[in-house]
């Protein structure tokens, strides 16, 4: 038998410990170098982030990004559920023809045009007369309406994935269609699509980086302002990327945890 089929044993444990120690040491050294650099008044880092309190652009930008993401996610989920209900009711019963028609136009237009264009139209056409200090609401509305279209199709697929026998069992007990939907179908559908919905929120978080097109000072715009002020692109943009990455990694970890918990509930 070839050796490669055998789990290697001797000595490897020590090697692994050594590798872990090395990685920790390297990370520690990097952080230490970062902090030392940050405090060194001649360094690029100091000039980029500390002079004129420029780090505040990133902080307030991050705040705006999170507000837009959270509010747009809520709005998107509300719109998405409504559209999904109308569409699947039409698919199942043939009713709500006009509602279904309107929803299909909404889905086609929103999914068929770029997010940035929708944002610009929302700000410069539809809300052209609005005071610019309310632009964050325009951003939330634009991102929420956009996200709603994707959520709608996720939720609809969840509803359609529920066995028709569940509808029939509910109906045979005398429950009306809305009651069957509310108490039997949606709880099951929601559980099935929860991971996909969470992923949609992650996508939305990154999408909000185009909010700068209407002058929103979000995280991306914050980094860009620092770049313009310091004539240094490397540091601020890398910092922005790192912050997005950290948030996405955290959200992804949460989604993973959620999925494992739902899977556990299934086995019961």
């Amino acid at each position: 038998m070839s050796k490669s089929f055998v789990e290697p044993k001797a000595g490897n444990k020590k090697l692994r410990i050594l590798a872990v120690i090395l990685v920790i040491a390297a990370a520690g050294a990097a952080i230490a170098a970062f902090v030392i650099n940050l405090l060194d008044k001649d360094s690029k880092l100091y000039e980029t982030f500390v002079v004129d309190n420029r780090w505040q652009y990133l902080l307030s930008g991050l705040g705006n990004t999170l507000i837009i993401t959270a509010c747009a996610a809520v709005l998107g989920i509300l719109i998405g559920f409504l559209v999904a209900m109308i569409r699947s009711t039409h698919d199942k019963t043939g009713k709500l023809k006009i509602g279904n028609f309107i929803c299909r136009i909404y889905l086609t237009v929103i999914r068929g045009t770029p997010m940035v264009v929708q944002l610009l139209i929302m700000y410069f056409v539809i809300f052209a007369t609005l005071n610019s200090k309310y632009k964050i609401f325009v951003a939330i509305l634009a991102f929420g309406i956009n996200s709603g279209a994707y959520v709608a199709e996720i939720v609809r697929s969840g509803i359609m994935s529920i066995d028709n026998g569940q509808f029939e069992a509910g109906a045979s007990l005398g429950l009306s269609y809305p009651k069957v939907m509310l108490y039997i179908i949606l709880p099951q559908a929601f559980k099935n699509v929860l991971p996909a919905l969470a992923n949609e929120v992650i996508v939305l978080l990154k999408e909000t980086s185009v909010a700068g097109y209407i002058g929103m000072e979000d995280l991306t715009k914050g980094g860009d302002i620092i770049r313009a002020n310091t004539y240094q692109a490397f540091m601020p943009l890398l910092a922005v990327a790192a912050i997005y990455l950290i948030m996405v990694v955290i959200l992804t970890a949460l989604v993973g945890k959620l999925e494992r918990r739902l899977a556990k509930n299934d086995k019961r």
């Binding site: 066995d163 029939e168 007990l173 005398g174 709880p187």
Partner: peptide, 29 residues
Amino acid sequence: NYMRQSMGMVFQHFNLFPHLTIRKNITLA
């Protein structure tokens, strides 16, 4: 819907509600 209340139906594939406990399955309607 009212008529169906007086006609119980049992299906080949049971069609119990998987997200509810047995007691809730019975009491829901």
